[in-house]
Nucleic acid binder design. Structure first.
Lengths: 291, 291
DNA sequence: CGTCTCATGTGAAGATTTGCACATGAGGTT
DNA sequence: AACCTCATGTGCAAATCTTCACATGAGACG
């Protein structure tokens, strides 16, 4: 049974009882229908139809095929309906991935978007490894750093995340706050353990002696926890810091600290209503994130 | 969704994850697979796969199609198995048609054949109208008279049904029996109301005065009932008469009374195991029907 | 870091499928 | 009884589909 179109032809013949009728429904010449039937019967070794001058009458075998193909036809019709609708509607899954740092900012956006589209299921992936759009692991990715340059990805500039140095109340009470950069050498800092390409991190290593970076973490979230706990002064996104009541901004935010963020989608999914709709919602929500 | 083969192609791609793998399974060139997918996606307006260098990954839509097509594939495989087996096995229906007269003789044959093939359902059709093999109304027909000459029918000579004149006990007690043809004019007969081409009927009209045919019927079964009831002397198949205890043969059977019977099958069904098997069984059983 | 393998993608040639024209036959109708 | 309609069936030309050949790119492996 290695030719489903012939089955479909036989189905219409069985359903309608004539080759001509099936040909019209299928939009092909009746000679084609005859050849499909002959080929199928030849491969199966069974007569599917009785041929007579008034048309084709299904044999038992033909009726058996009719029943099976009828359900197939129904199921395909349903499937086609679902799939066609899917392109234009916001349903099913929306998979978004980003660095874990952005979770506090993204969560309300994702929740709000889902609220607007009740049939949508949101999957928000954060993890150690990079989720790859080209393998279909996510619809939308939020990336930091240099503009990604994957050929099949659609990249658009997103916000620049506003960053500033913060100190917790606990730290302030014990060490005070530096008035300017010259006093950094008398303070303790929270920073990344490894050298990263993040602008704020590079700035920190240039302007603060290594020995003053006394609390070093492997990821942004732990870094945040360190600052909040008063282990030292450290960089936090402004929007993140605002969520805490016990943090004081040290100095003011500077553009050169903030890394550009990028919205990345796979080209195959970029034009779908679901992705477009989410991108519009996300950009609107992100207007307040700027420095 | 007017091209089931493209669905089948997409199914294999979704299942295997690569175009090349699907092409190998399907026995076509990988370019064909790519074009099927492109065509299907174009018609549906939905991306079914994420294309990347390591293969094709199914999107949500592709996975949806995978599920539907998987069941279709299973059902078609089952269907093919059933249909291929059907040509070689004696199962399903066997539809036999004949004149109602032959019912008493055929019934035991049909019953015996069905006993040998437990998966068989027998439909025995007798009726006023002729059931037409070319419309698939029956697999095997038993016909009387001149050899049928339908182009698509396979006709083979069957037995000549042994016929003889019979009188019931009731008649014999009241009128005695004729010693030879010369005494027919002093007896009463049961015969057909209309002139038919049946040899025994024509013989009756030639050798018996019309006024002596006092019980005239429209069909063979009523004719039989008349003879059994003692309405007069009449023709009965020998095999039928033997089933009654109260009938006496008048004279002896003559070959010229008997009409040839024909076994007719439609050419499309003639070579199937079911029909061939039944024909063999029927011929074996009919050996005792001859004059 | 270059090479090797294996995947997708595309233009042109070739093969199969399709469509067309016409023949044939069965019923129904006037 | 002749005709009209509607069905299947077949040879041949045309169109579509498939294959072939080759290009390109991403990982894997020394």
């Amino acid at each position: 049974m290695d030719n489903w179109d012939e089955v479909r032809t036989a189905f219409q013949v069985a359903r309608l009882g004539t080759v001509s009728g099936a040909a019209e429904v299928l939009g092909v010449h009746h000679a084609t229908v005859i050849r499909h039937i002959d080929a199928l019967e030849g491969k199966l070794g069974v007569k599917l139809f009785q041929r007579h001058a008034r048309g084709y009458t299904a044999t038992e075998a033909g009726n058996d095929l009719l029943l099976v193909a009828q359900t197939t036809d129904d199921q395909f019709a349903q499937l086609a309906g679902r799939l066609k609708g899917r392109g234009a509607s916001v349903t099913g899954e929306l998979v978004v991935t980003s660095l874990a740092t952005f979770s506090p900012m993204l969560a309300p956006v994702l929740a709000g978007f889902r609220e607007e589209h009740p049939e949508l299921t949101v999957r928000y992936l954060t993890g150690d490894r990079l989720f790859r759009l080209e393998y279909g692991e996510a619809h939308v990715a939020i990336r930091a750093g240099a503009a990604p340059d994957q050929p099949d990805n659609v990249v658009q500039p997103f916000v620049r995340q506003g960053l500033a140095l913060y100190a917790a109340d606990f730290y302030k009470e014990r060490h005070g706050l530096p008035k300017d950069e010259s006093e950094y050498k008398d303070h303790y800092f929270v920073g990344h353990d490894q050298e990263t390409r993040a602008p704020f991190n590079m700035w920190l290593r240039e302007h603060v002696p290594m020995e003053n970076i006394v609390y070093r973490t492997a990821d942004n979230r732990s870094n945040e926890d360190g600052v909040v706990a008063g282990a030292g002064i450290g960089f936090l996104p402004v929007k993140v810091a605002e969520r805490y009541g016990n943090l004081t901004m040290v100095g003011s935010p500077r553009p050169e600290w903030s890394a550009p963020l990028w919205l990345v989608t796979h080209v195959d999914l970029h034009r779908t209503a679901k992705v477009q709709s989410f991108l519009a919602y996300l950009k609107e929500a992100a207007k307040s994130w700027e420095v």
